[in-house]
Every structure is written in C-alpha cells, then in structure tokens.
C-alpha cells in the first residue's frame, strides 16, 4: 500500500568562517589587447565561482564581461583563497576582486592621465575607456592603454586586492565560544513523498526549496545550485549507502552502477525552487553564499515526510527500503515510533 506524507525543514546555514580569518586575494591584469585577466584562488567545481567573480570584476571595472578572463587553475599561479568551502566564496572573494579592481583602476587612471596629458584627478574610467571628465571625447580605450603600456612602454598594469571578514579570532577560554561563521543564509524545504509499505521504497513526488541568498549575483546559477543540491540531498536521505551487502563485504560496491545515486528517474516530477533576496551588509551587493545548504535541506524534509506518511521517525540515513521496512516492522510489533538500527559496522569496515 502506498501512503503519502508531507514534511518540511528550515535551515540556518552558516556561510564563511571568520573564526579562522577567512582571507581571499585577487589579481587583475590589463592585457595588451585591453582584456582583463582575473586570477583568483577560489576553486570552481562547476558551481560557477569563476563566472560569478568575472561578473563582479566586469562591473567593478565597468567593462563587458566578455573581455574578462579568469583562471584558478593552479596554486602556483593563483593568489590565496581560504577555499571553496563553508559556502564562503560568494561572500568573501568578491571583496578581494573589488579591491583589486580599485587598485587597477587607479593605475590605469594614472597611466592614462600621463598619456592624455591631463591631471590624474580629471581622469574618469567607464565603459572600457579612460577619458577627461571635462572633455569625454579626449579618451583612450583599455585596448589602447593595454597596447601602449605592455608593448610600447614595457609597463605592467596589475591590480591586487585582499580581504578578510575579520582578524583570526580565538575561542573564549572560559566558555569555549567561538564566533565562527560570518553570515547565516536561510533555507526552507518542503517535500511530498509516497511510501510503499510493501517494499519500503520512498518516492519523492514533489519538492519545493527556497533560499534567502542576500543577492543572487547570477540567478540562473543560484537556481542550478538549489535544484542541484537535491541530487546530493536525495542521495543522503534515501539512497547512497555502502552498507549492508549480503552476505559479506565481498558483495559490496565495486562499480558506479552499484552505487545508487539519484538519476533522472528519481527526481520529483514537480520540483520548484525559490530565491529570496535580503541584501546583507557584509556581502558585495549584499550577496552571501548558501549552496552547501541546498544539499542538506532536503534530508530532514524527506525524513519528516516519511514520518507524516507512516508514523515512524527514522533516525538514520539513508532511509533505504530495508531501513523503512525494519522501522515499519518495529512499529507493528513493538509499537516503536522511533527507529535506528544500532548496526555494528566495524566488521564491514575491517
């Protein structure tokens, strides 16, 4: 028999980790063709850090994003970033990029003032050009400046920037308290499930996930991260497990095919995402990170939906068919409404 249920959860997701200082750095260089080469340390695993930082650099330099290239390919070349972790990149790294852009703008303005034979204070940079404030027609493009500086005068125009939310903080020796995170992002997830009491299978039929992200610098990528978090969240809640494999560990997972990560078939037929924006004073444009949270929010939502459907709280994830059936069995025979297996897994790990 199939039983339906609805569950929800609210998430406060800490982003940044200022307790450890949490520094980031950026370098922007003007190339001979007038394009900008942005070097950052934040690793882009597909979440879009480079695209987002290119957007920030393009706006800070007031140029077309198509002329901004970015690289984080090697630690040998890239400046430092405390890492793509703790949902911190969108919160911290844009500050370093903005600082680097300020530095480069000042250097370009000084160089252009000399070439345009005007006061440095009279130079304005906009739309990929440097021009005299009192006579906008008296101008040089970034391509002119890049060519003359790099190839004509043998000058390198590089802006550097670094930023961290606060100095490294120790914990309070009396209480052990450490003000660890910089900013909180808020998430909400509601899941509808259908539980097959005969097989123990749980199907997610509808899922809504909403995140308050301060400011969505790239709304398409925010959507991807919200909906994409479900890939991991559903795996955590229902599927991905290395135990148990009968009759012994030699029957364990050997190939990707044995590892039940969610596929197209598992995604809910109705999947809705939402983005809320309440600009945060610490973020550039009010932006803060959230992505990691989108992978965790579906887990309690799905588990509480199972409780709504069949009346048992499952205290271990993933709630595989075996776990659900054992939980239903325990409820039927002992009336227990909470279930965890207390399974000793040491033998499997040996």
């Amino acid at each position: 028999m199939k039983k339906n249920g609805v569950g929800m959860c609210l998430v406060l997701h800490p982003t940044g980790r200022k307790g450890g200082g949490d520094p980031s750095q950026a370098i922007i260089q003007l190339k001979p063709d007038g394009s900008l080469f942005l070097k950052v340390g934040a690793v882009d695993l597909g979440q879009g850090a480079l695209t987002m930082l290119r957007q920030v650099a393009a706006e800070a330099m007031d140029v077309d994003i198509a002329t901004v290239y970015a690289s984080n390919r090697s630690d040998d070349l890239a400046p430092l970033s405390a890492g793509s972790a703790a949902s911190r990149v969108t919160l911290v790294d844009p500050h370093a990029v903005v600082e680097a852009a300020k530095d480069l703008r000042a250097k370009i303005a000084a160089f252009a003032a000399h070439r345009l034979e005007i006061d440095a204070g009279n130079v304005e940079l906009a739309d990929g050009k440097a021009f005299a404030k009192d006579n906008p027609h008296h101008h040089m493009t970034f391509a002119d400046i890049g060519m003359i500086a790099n190839l004509g005068e043998g000058v390198i125009l590089v802006g550097t920037g670094a930023w961290q939310p606060s100095p490294v903080q120790g914990h309070d020796p009396e209480t052990g308290y450490l003000d660890q995170e910089s900013v909180i992002s808020f998430g909400c997830c509601v899941a509808e499930v259908s539980v097959d009491t005969g097989t123990g299978e749980v199907e997610v039929t509808k899922l809504v996930q909403v995140w308050e992200v301060g400011k969505a610098i790239n709304p398409l990528m925010v959507k991807q991260q919200i909906n994409g978090g479900l890939q991991i969240g559903m795996g955590l809640a229902l599927r991905e497990n290395l135990f148990p494999h009968y009759p012994d560990p030699t029957h364990g997972i050997e190939a990707l095919a044995d590892y039940p990560m969610p596929t197209f078939m598992d995604y809910p037929p109705e999947l809705i995402h939402g983005i809320q924006e309440v600009p945060h004073p610490m973020g550039v444009k009010g932006a803060k990170g959230f992505s990691e949270g989108s992978a965790t929010a579906p887990v309690p939502a799905i588990i509480s939906a199972i409780h709504d459907a069949v009346g048992v709280w499952i205290h271990e994830v993933p709630a595989t068919p075996e776990v659900v059936l054992r939980a239903l069995d325990a409820k039927e025979h002992g009336g227990a409404t909470d279930y965890w297996s207390h399974q000793d897994r040491s033998a499997w790990l040996a």
């Binding site: 991807q224 909906n227 994409g228 991991i232 990707l256 969610p262 995604y267 999947l271």
Partner: peptide, 10 residues
C-alpha cells in the same frame, strides 16, 4: 546519463 551536479530538472 548521470549528473552529480544535479541538472536533471534543467
């Protein structure tokens, strides 16, 4: 076709 980033909906 598996996608670990979870672009199935998109």
């Amino acid at each position: 076709n598996l996608c670990r980033c979870g672009c199935y909906e998109e």
